[in-house]
Write a protein that binds this DNA or RNA. Sequence first.
DNA 1: TCAGATAAAATCGCGC
DNA 2: GCGCGATTTTATCTGA
Lengths: 81, 81, 81, 81
Amino acid sequence: MTTNAIEAGQLKAFIERIERLEEEKKTIADDIKDVYAEAKGNGFDIKIMRKIVSIRRQDKAKREEEEEILDLYMNALGMAG
Amino acid sequence: MTTNAIEAGQLKAFIERIERLEEEKKTIADDIKDVYAEAKGNGFDIKIMRKIVSIRRQDKAKREEEEEILDLYMNALGMAG
Amino acid sequence: MTTNAIEAGQLKAFIERIERLEEEKKTIADDIKDVYAEAKGNGFDIKIMRKIVSIRRQDKAKREEEEEILDLYMNALGMAG
Amino acid sequence: MTTNAIEAGQLKAFIERIERLEEEKKTIADDIKDVYAEAKGNGFDIKIMRKIVSIRRQDKAKREEEEEILDLYMNALGMAG
DNA sequence: TCAGATAAAATCGCGC
DNA sequence: GCGCGATTTTATCTGA
């Protein structure tokens, strides 16, 4: 049946796209590790650096949540965002 | 061999402790749902409430991270926490 | 307007009840982790233990579902459960 | 003290490099999600697709490990890879 | 169906 | 170099 062949081909294509993207992701993850290692080589403490990155990420997330809740309030009050 | 019997009994005891705790946890999760439902019955918007809880949780997490990083700095500088 | 003040107070109370419950939930989640850690200290494999707990949970769900179906049949046949 | 200023600048540069890379990583992670969503829209089962990707990844790791072992043997025997 | 929460698994850097 | 503990990431599940 040709339908199955077509489906199989489609599936293969999707899988391969995903695998390509995952490789790219891994490359970037490795790059991040390299940067930490390089920083460590320059005398910085990885643990502290991670904490800094984490706090800054939380700041950002918090700001975004506050914007979101503002939108929710506006909508609840029947006002245009 | 008795060793296996003892091990099996120990394992069983651990599993049962975990299962009991998980039941307790589920009970509390259900309680939380009930509170949301009750609030909804009093005219409050669940989505907004969740957002409020979420933002307050982030505030707390952020404060804790800041304390942690302070400790890290203090240690890095060789000072007593 | 007093209505708003009352509403705000009510909302605050709901939020605080939820937060208290979530803390309790977290405490129990931590207890569960502790039990796993203790089991590990006694030579058991955490991953396998999780599997056991998970399978037993599924078994339980399955049994309950079967009972429900049985009840449905009984009711459909006009018989008392 | 200029040393501190230099260090601070260096640290800032490292942090920003990491944050840029993490954003790229997130973009790719989102792309992957999109592909899964698209596949789903074409009638494929995401859970099964994840399983396929995971198995292929393990196969690949296994093959690479086998090659490594082969290389080790070859070297141990004083043969060129 | 969709986001958001939770559970489970994997990873990483460190200390021994 | 290896296990440990901690963090991150992935996967599943729930509920609006």
